[in-house]
Design a protein around this nucleic acid. Structure first.
Length: 580
RNA sequence: GCGGCUGUAGCUCAGCGGAUUAGAGCAUCGGUCUACGGAACCGAGGGUCGGGGGUUCGAAUCCCUCCAGCCGCACCA
């Protein structure tokens, strides 16, 4: 607000919507105009249909009243189409003014929200001393995209990486650590061979009774806080976190070691969860376990299904730590929104946790609490994504393979770059391919992981969008570095120019729709559509060879397009390189 | 059995607060252009939107039902 240079452009959509709203209000306060972009006009409002039905009047009649009441002077022309749709065509003067404003707005019309919320996003959640595999890909990529979008939207984000760093198998892991020695373990873990470490421990546990006995004793020592055992446990945890950080670096994910708040963090709060549930009278003992029975959940036999808070062996289940974490996020972190980016198999469990939290009064209505559900990653055979040997695929090998593939593609088409620059570019392309493929599909759907398709430079892919951006930047390299956003007049005489311009004005709406629905794919769709508008423009409208005001105008359109693509991709966690 | 998710062109996916010939990418076919990066542009063919019913002037979109697939359904998280 205090920064006068930050031009807060009222979005085109919002301008149209609010003017229509005033007109609709004359008939019924708050009636939704239902405005959307359209192929018939630039925008179409079809809220008249629903309103007419409620008022018991003919749609046509209502449409005429709205048209008479609406003030769209110098903004758009309206015409009634069909039974009562309002088709809006934006006026040239308004387009020109909007584009001029955008030219000077670093946020491209995307004003930060008036009221910042504190949003807690739980995502990634790998397990200590276990490999990160494809199953963690979606949580990590989607969670990080949402975190970036919330931040850019003006909210405060607290990322929580709910790492699995506790449980009975740590007895076995620590004993194995002792067998191979600190340094041996460190070297195995640091090169990222976590699967090997875990497998070796498991094999001994299953085949060696003495080892099994030591492991059980070790669990007890760990739970009772034995200092040496805790030291060993820390070795495992720290090595793993270092490894995860390397994976996040490869993926360009914003999670840091500070965001890791594992299950162990809640250990001393679990007893309180049980005690407090008991005090409220929700706790029921069933088959030796302490449970809460939220309404509406049944087991196979049609009997009430419990959320087991404390197991019959007195140990705490993950329900307990999830409840403790939820309380922490509401009471201590003061979250306004709690998001859990967790896969579909956990739907019932989290629903039960949320239900119990509400019953206990730990989750007030003002707090939005939601699981950001996502589907599975499938192989090209439409079965769960596995390696040829039938094993789960390591996340790092997935990324590495994509980088190699990007390298090959760069070589094939010949690049000016070499050495580190070339490697960095290959990484950027690989990440774009993987992330965009994941983000551009509606997240609840399973999707098919097909590296060839997602790294292709043609079609609806990350690299295609990067390429569109790189071509744009190339224009400016050739134009000489004297160009800067000036006062171009946007006449938009060519159809392709006008289509591109309308696309550019759509960013705020696309962004907030996407964020509001927690659906990054909507922003992807917008960016791809914009890129297509651009390539059509690029083909039809020469930029550098045009002259005078027209050249200025087209350069300004290119500048806006490049910035919009870069911003949009960036907010999804995808780089937009200057050249490819 | 109960609950959830999914079923849209050959393939991969959008659309699902109801709207006029159901969209895109890939693949196929046909054009354009000595192309500011052709990793391009323009166009064509291809779908009874899983089946059936209902609500409606109008449904891929809402409701019911059936079919198919995936997932979950008490002490591993």
């Amino acid at each position: 607000m205090s920064d006068a240079r930050l031009v807060l452009v009222t979005s085109t959509y919002e301008t149209l919507r609010s003017r229509l709203q005033s007109a609709f209000d004359t008939l019924e306060v708050g009636a939704d105009p239902v405005l959307r972009t359209s192929e018939r006009g630039d925008y179409q409002a079809n809220g008249v249909m629903a309103l007419a039905k409620r008022l018991g009047r003919s749609p046509r009649e209502v449409a005429e009243i709205v048209v008479d009441a609406v003030d769209l002077t110098d903004v758009a022309t309206v015409e009634i189409a069909g039974p009562g749709f309002l088709n809006l065509t934006v006026q040239p003067v308004f387009l020109d003014a909007q584009l001029r404003n955008l030219s000077h707005d670093p946020r491209l019309g995307l004003a930060p929200v008036a009221e910042a919320l504190r949003v807690i996003i739980d995502y990634s959640a790998p397990n200590v001393a276990k490999e990160m595999h494809v199953g963690h890909l979606r949580s990590t990529v989607i969670g990080d995209a949402l975190a970036r979008m919330y931040r850019f939207g003006g909210h405060q984000v607290i990322a929580r990486n709910h790492v699995g760093d506790w449980g009975t198998n740590f007895g076995m892991l620590i004993e194995h650590l002792l067998d191979v020695g600190d340094e041996g373990a460190a070297s195995t873990l640091s090169i990222g061979d976590l699967d090997e470490f875990y497998r070796a421990a498991r094999v001994k546990f299953d085949s060696d009774d003495a080892f099994k006995g030591r492991s059980r004793t070790r669990v007890v020592a760990l739970q009772s806080g034995d200092p040496e055992t805790l030291r060993l446990w820390h070795v495992l945890v720290n090595q793993s976190i270092a490894y995860f950080s390397e994976v996040y670096r490869k993926l360009d994910v914003t999670l840091t070691a500070q965001d890791v708040v594992g299950e162990s963090y809640y250990n001393d709060k679990l007893a309180d969860v049980v005690r407090d549930l008991d005090a409220i009278g929700l706790l029921v003992e069933s088959e030796g376990a302490l449970c809460v029975f939220p309404e509406g959940f049944q087991n196979r036999e049609g009997e009430p299904l419990p959320l087991i808070v404390q197991k019959s062996d007195d140990g705490f289940g993950y329900a307990a730590s999830d409840l403790a974490a939820l309380r922490d996020r509401v009471d201590i972190l003061k979250g306004d929104e709690l998001l859990y980016v967790v896969g579909a198999p956990q739907v019932q469990h989290l629903e039960m946790v949320f239900a119990v939290a509400r019953m206990a009064g730990w989750l007030p209505d003002r707090v939005r609490c939601e699981q950001v559900v996502f589907g599975n990653v499938l192989g090209t055979d439409h079965k769960m994504f596995k390696s040829r040997a039938g094993e789960t695929v390591k996340l790092v090998s997935l990324v590495d393979e994509a980088v190699e593939r990007a390298f090959v593609i760069l070589d094939e088409r010949g690049t000016d770059l070499d050495g580190d620059a070339k490697y960095l570019l290959a990484e950027q392309i690989a990440r774009a391919a993987i992330k965009y493929a994941d983000l551009s599909t509606e997240r609840q759907h399973d999707y098919v992981f097909d590296l060839d398709r997602m790294i292709a430079f043609e079609g609806d892919t990350g690299p295609y969008l990067q390429y569109a951006h790189a071509r744009l930047r190339s224009i400016f390299r050739r134009s000489g570095d004297e160009w800067q956003a000036g006062n171009a007049h946007f006449a938009l005489e060519a159809t392709a120019e006008r289509n591109l311009a309308l696309g550019l004005l759509g960013l705020p709406e696309a962004f907030f729709t996407s964020l509001g629905a927690l659906q990054p794919h909507r922003l992807c769709t917008y960016l791809f559509d914009l890129a297509q508008r651009f390539t059509s423009f690029y083909d039809a409208c020469p930029v550098l060879s045009s002259e005078g005001a027209l050249r200025e105008e087209r350069l300004a359109l290119c500048d806006l397009t490049a910035r919009t693509l870069k911003l949009g991709l960036g907010v999804l966690g995808i780089d937009a390189p200057e050249q490819m």
